[in-house]
């Protein structure tokens, strides 16, 4: 029995988790029927605090996410968790195992966990993840945690525009250096050195603090990202992390940056969607008889250079759009 988008919307607002789950599936599948429900949901979202959690594989993100969620549950706040893992570029399949480390949350109806495969999408992933965030937001989750492997550009995009972005590292393995390379030093609002009982933890903290101090463009009134040590497995440092998150939120509200962040996020979301639409339109144009095929042939014959060809396509698209 399939529900209409309107049914899903109605049920979701009434707190039906199956409706939320089904709508997320439609979004993941890029099913056009999701559009209508998303449209209606948009005005109901905006209440939740969105936390991004990223870091290298093995740094303990899932356990940290689990402990943080537990903390919020103890405060009687509801939690949504989105775990994004890479899909195989060859088969499109994925093994999503984050739930394994979140067992103590299972069975709690106030915690909604969704595992997503990245489905090899450039840009598309952030669009889908944003939609899922909005769904859980409208579904009434007080805190929404988005967890990704901080391995590539796409994953960073996903957490970049959350309200509070947490970057997780652990001692050893040159993770601190990795952080700069991948450019996640810029996006982190809070840094966590997890597994802090291991050798080299004080050094990892010191290195991170030094790098953060020397970060360019740091002004007096700007947020100073704290470095927090945790032992997620033992549950240590979680209260401190939660306190840092609410301090960050407090800072965002007081400084007016929350609004700015929201605008930034909306802008990024819009840009992603536009990118997706335009590139799809361009791809379609290239497939079209006479236009794209002809251009490509002319390029191959060296009659026209790629830049001029691109200009022609853009002109064609604009003209068609105006029609």
């Amino acid at each position: 029995m399939k529900d209409s988008p309107n049914d899903l919307y109605q049920k979701l607002l009434k707190g039906d988790r199956r409706a939320a789950a089904r709508l997320i599936t439609l979004v993941e599948n890029a099913d056009p029927s999701a559009r209508q429900a998303l449209k209606m949901l948009h005005r109901h979202s905006g209440g939740g605090h969105i936390v991004g959690m990223t870091g290298s594989p093995g740094s303990g993100k899932s356990t940290l996410t689990c402990r943080l969620a537990r903390h919020y549950r103890d405060e009687d706040r509801s939690v949504g968790i989105i775990c994004v893992d890479p899909s195989s570029p060859f088969t499109g399949g994925a093994l999503l195992g984050d739930r394994v480390r979140m067992q103590e949350l299972s069975g709690d109806p106030e915690v909604f966990i969704r595992s997503m495969g990245s489905r090899g999408a450039l840009g598309g992933l952030s669009v889908a993840t944003n939609d899922v965030i909005n769904i859980l937001d409208a579904f009434g989750k007080d805190v929404i945690i988005v967890e990704t492997v901080g391995a590539g550009q796409v994953e960073i995009e996903v957490v970049k525009y959350t309200h509070t972005c947490i970057v997780v590292t652990m001692p050893g393995g040159g993770d601190e250096i990795q952080a700069i390379k991948a450019g996640i030093l810029e996006i982190g609002d809070i840094f966590v050195v997890n597994k802090s009982d291991r050798d080299g933890a004080p050094r990892a903290v010191a290195d991170l603090e030094m790098m953060l101090e020397t970060k360019p463009g740091t002004s007096e009134e700007a947020w100073k990202p704290p470095v927090i040590t945790t032992m997620a497995l033992a549950g240590e440092g979680i209260d401190e992390l939660a306190a840092a998150i609410s301090a960050h939120r407090g800072f965002l509200v007081e400084s007016g940056l929350l609004e700015e962040k929201t605008v930034q996020r909306m802008r990024a979301e819009l840009l992603e969607i536009l990118n997706l639409k335009v590139s799809r339109a361009a791809e379609n144009a290239l497939e079209e008889e006479g236009v794209g095929a002809e251009l490509v042939r002319r390029m191959a014959d060296r009659e026209i250079d790629p830049h001029s060809a691109a200009d022609e396509v853009v002109e064609y698209l604009l003209k068609r759009a105006g029609r």
């Binding site: 899909s87 195989s88 088969t91 399949g93 994925a94 093994l95 999503l96 195992g97 739930r99």
Partner: peptide, 9 residues
């Protein structure tokens, strides 16, 4: 997974 499915464990 190798058959292209998303497997949640």
């Amino acid at each position: 997974r190798d058959a292209g499915m998303e497997v949640i464990y």
